[in-house]
Amino acid sequence: MKRAVIVQAKRTPIGKANGMLKNYEPHELAAPLLKYLAEGLEEKIDDVILGNVVGPGGNIARLSALEAGLPLSVPGLTLDRQCSAGLEAIRLASYLIQGGAGTCYIAGGTESASTSPFTKRARFSPDKIGDPDMGAAAENVAEKCSISKEAQDTYALLSYERSWKAFESGLLADELIPFGSHSHDEEFFKKRKMDTLLKRAKPIFKKDGTVTAANSCGIHDGAAAVLVMEEETAIKNGYKPILRFADSAVAGVHPNYPGFAPVPAIQSILERNYITIDDIDLIEINEAFASKITACANELSIPYEKLNVNGGALTVGHPYGASGAVLVTKLFYDVQRRRSCKYVLAAIGSGGGVGAAILFKAVC
């Protein structure tokens, strides 16, 4: 079987909805990434696979490839698995390489909440099952898993401090390519007194609830993508493999509890590969809500020391279709800094109750 490896990974700076990237459509956010990742390989790209969630519809991957000036022969595929879309794009590219369909793919996601033509979200589930908004669903997870506001706030503060430390030490700069005049994420324009904000924040989705604006992510714009290649082809073209695709899984849970969906996906990977959480050195789970992260960490016995070690979406942001690729981009650079990693994992939960996870072996 062919082996898929990730040899490059980048993202744009992430902006708040109606913030610094408000005038850019999804294909305009993705195009600079595609151009960067394809440099020198333009004629060898088999496909561009991008996740997108909030529009404007059409084949945004093809449009992005054309906007980037890639050869007309590069087709483009856009997919929607809600917040898992960017991770699913990488998963699909890896399996296409394993199956011999191609040797070189750009995969990731792009999202512009600012320019979305849709005034409300898509339906996640039939009403007869339950179709909660994600905030209400985060409350469901907190209640089901007995996650207190204090536990959520403790994690949110930890994530905030980690994000700022990573920014101030220059670690996040490795992940980025500048976008116009923007060279870092909008959330880092001004530091906040997060401990005070967390204490003051009131529940916003449920009376007497535990989920607040301070322990939830915001709505954002941005794009992220990776270059996935067949390993021998990558080496022949002068690339150094960093992450080798090892396995992946998707799983469904009740749509009322989408934040819990990473749990069965990760459990499936662990069981199939005869490993435990102890065998995984770094884990990235998307931080849509602190209730979700705390619930997943508790259920899977994940120590915070190896979970989202440089912060995540609670601070930097969650550009829906791109977030799964942001997780992989973080892992791509973290394993190169640590040099001692063997296995790393990225996972994300989505509206409708779908979880996706990818296990990588570090080869750098």
Rank of each mutant, 00 (worst) to 15 (best):
E111P: 11
G102D: 00
I280V: 11
L92T: 14
V54Y: 07
A223G: 11
G209Y: 01
V54D: 00
D153N: 09
P117W: 08
N215T: 02
R272N: 06
G355Q: 06
L33I: 07
L171Y: 12
E299S: 15
I275R: 00
E230I: 15
E230Q: 15
V328K: 09
P264R: 04
C364W: 15
K199H: 05
A113E: 01
M20Q: 04
H254W: 02
L331P: 15
D153L: 01
G349V: 03
S216N: 02
A9R: 00
Y160S: 00
Y304I: 01
P132R: 05
K292W: 12
T12N: 09
R3E: 12
F167K: 07
R339H: 14
L66Y: 11
S146G: 05
I97Y: 06
A142V: 08
K193M: 03
M1G: 11
L50H: 05
K44N: 14
S350K: 03
E161N: 14
Q82L: 06
I204T: 04
L198P: 00
K361A: 13
E111F: 13
K128N: 11
S114L: 01
G317W: 12
S291D: 09
P117F: 08
G15A: 07
C364P: 15
P255C: 01
F289E: 01
K35H: 06
W164F: 14
N52W: 05
E42V: 08
P303V: 00
L282V: 07
R338E: 04
G353P: 02
C341D: 10
F167N: 05
A65M: 06
V253N: 05
N23W: 03
A346D: 02
D221I: 10
D279N: 14
M194I: 11
L72A: 14
Q267T: 12
T103M: 09
V54K: 04
F260V: 02
A113G: 08
K190Y: 08
T119W: 13
L29K: 08
G180H: 02
A151M: 13
F205K: 03
S94H: 13
I348P: 02
N310M: 09
A322D: 07
S148N: 09
V250A: 15
A356Q: 14
G58K: 11
L171P: 00
G170N: 09
T329P: 14
K236R: 15
Y343C: 10
P126H: 07
S301R: 07
G102F: 13
E186T: 06
I49Y: 11
T110S: 14
K128V: 15
K128I: 13
E284K: 01
S146R: 12
L21K: 12
Y239W: 13
T12C: 04
Y257R: 01
I242P: 09
P56C: 07
K44P: 02
A265W: 03
A85E: 03
K202I: 11
G108M: 04
K128R: 13
I90F: 00
L197D: 04
I275F: 03
D334S: 15
S146V: 04
S183F: 08
I269L: 13
M20N: 07
S159C: 02
E67A: 14
R3D: 10
S169Q: 12
P56V: 00
P56I: 01
E284S: 07
F179M: 10
G19S: 15
Y155V: 08
L327H: 11
T212Y: 09
G108V: 10
T212C: 02
D153W: 00
V335Q: 05
L157H: 10
Y333P: 11
Y320H: 03
I266V: 13
A214C: 10
L314F: 03
G57H: 05
E88R: 08
